[in-house]
Design a protein around this nucleic acid. Sequence first.
DNA 1: TCCATTTGTAACTATAATTGTTACTAATAC
DNA 2: GTATTAGTAACAATTATAGTTACAAATGGA
Lengths: 160, 160
Amino acid sequence: MPANSRFAIAVHILTLMARAGDESMKSDEVACSVNTNPVVIRRILCALSKAGLVVSQTGASGGSRLALKPSRITLLEVYRAVDAGDVFALHPQPPNAKCPVGMNIEGALDRILNEVEQGVERVLEKITIEKVLKSIEPRAAKARAARSENRNSGKKEREL
Amino acid sequence: MPANSRFAIAVHILTLMARAGDESMKSDEVACSVNTNPVVIRRILCALSKAGLVVSQTGASGGSRLALKPSRITLLEVYRAVDAGDVFALHPQPPNAKCPVGMNIEGALDRILNEVEQGVERVLEKITIEKVLKSIEPRAAKARAARSENRNSGKKEREL
DNA sequence: TCCATTTGTAACTATAATTGTTACTAATAC
DNA sequence: GTATTAGTAACAATTATAGTTACAAATGGA
């Protein structure tokens, strides 16, 4: 199943919560939108909570909500909060230290990996959760309009 | 074992061949430096060959060598040649289409993934195999000097 | 005070990708 | 013709992920 989707799900979660505003959401509700098990959501929420991006409360009428305004949460913080994994892996086994290339290639690759990660981070730090929510809203509005068209023509659909 | 190391190994292979110049290398020799099985090397060489980065020859005294000068091979071409995988994965299961966020989040994440990949590519296109080899040489030379020190003081080590 | 609800977390399963390995075919040089 | 080498298929071992069940701890309300 490799190449993990925790970052994608984390962005989904935070976008839902940005939309919910002050109201807190339960892991069950979030799981319904993400289409997975609530425990999967809670595991990711736990990481986001440790990073200070959400606050959660146990007990009856508990749940989670954003700890910061959506405009203050960048995708870089999200990427760092969940362990998204490296862009590429180094050698599975250490290369041959008796070879002039084998001896030094890991260091070179490590420096390249750092540069690549910086490239990723430069992109992610420019995108906020607010921006993601806004990029979604017009499409959702369009879909709502289309649905009311359908309703007029007799079709039915449930929505959240 | 997930998060694949094919890109790292491909860079290692090409750096070895850059150093070998016109002489072709056998998958066995490369495997010795990478510290893995020759079939693993041949699989990656096959991808590099399809991308036109190396040429291979079967048969006695066969082997592989670079198809282009080291200064003409960028790491971006290498990254594209081997299937290095995406920086992050989208949802394992499609999100709930009845939810305004679930309905549109995949498209938003896909656009973000494209931007991130472009960030990665901007970094990789600036690094050539020649550059990697040069970043390794001074260290290798230093190590050679240290080894001859050792030899003078009576110690022994094999090298390639 | 007790009960229902919810998070946090451990433990386990199923799935899938990667790497390593053996074995074989086809091509090539000597 | 024989030895050598790449190309490739098939399979095993390892590992991470995602999903699931189960339960303790916290919380709010009756």
